[in-house]
Amino acid sequence: MNDVMTALAAVAPLASGWAWHGVTMRRRLAAARRDPLSGLPTRAAFERRADRALARGQHVVIVMDLDGFKGLNDAFGHAAGDAAIRVTAMSLTGFLNGRRGSVAARLGGDEFAAVVPVTDRVALPWLLGGLHGAVTAPFRYSGRDLAVGASIGACVTSDLPVASLSLALRRADEAMYEAKRAGGGWRIAEGPALTHTTTAGRRTGRPGTSRGEAA
């Protein structure tokens, strides 16, 4: 019995070390799937989850760009821009909270996307208007009230010939561009696709969205 207890005592630290290693690896893998600034899923993680969601029924696919982001960066510095990204992510997450099956992500720069289940498209104006209001609300930074605008494009998957995420993102992106040209707000993709060529599901020639660029 003493020999058994001695052996277990010798193995325990090794087992504990492997257990901690496993926890660390899981945490690192989870972190790799999250954008470090916003805390939202990265594009790759978003696409995997969104593909599964679209297979379960009708959804609205949303693409959103912040308006006035470059001006905020120029006037108040990149730290203020980072704060705007974090606040936008929190507003987006908070607005979608409770909408079971929703998936949101930061695609890069000041660009975000979401996939939300929708059973009644009559409610879409309320959904998109509410989202726009949530992400454009002023936020506090260094004793100042700051705000950014937003242009939102949406595509309902049942309007597509096939529930393809890449096609839905393209159509939502086109609708977002139309909203941006009109000065912001939201638009729902309707009718045939526009004539823009696309690259990797995005409109070719679309303005850059890296941090600090106007979009």
Rank of each mutant, 00 (worst) to 15 (best):
S102T: 12
G94C: 08
E178R: 15
T136P: 11
A163F: 13
S166R: 14
L169A: 03
D74T: 10
N97S: 14
T93K: 07
S142E: 11
V115Y: 04
V87D: 05
V118D: 02
R140L: 15
D173Y: 09
K180V: 11
R140A: 15
I85P: 05
R106W: 11
R140W: 11
S164K: 10
G143C: 03
R140Y: 13
G77K: 00
D82K: 02
G81N: 05
M90H: 10
P161A: 13
M176H: 07
V103P: 05
S166W: 09
W126V: 15
R187W: 11
V162R: 15
F139A: 02
G149C: 12
A113R: 04
A113D: 04
S158Y: 10
G98S: 06
G81K: 08
T157C: 06
G129W: 08
F95L: 10
G153I: 09
L127D: 01
M90N: 09
S91D: 06
V103D: 01
I152D: 14
V122C: 14
V156G: 04
G143D: 00
N97T: 13
L165T: 07
A179D: 01
L160S: 03
A154T: 06
I85Q: 04
R99L: 15
R99K: 12
W126T: 13
P125G: 06
P125Q: 13
G101E: 04
V148K: 01
M176Y: 06
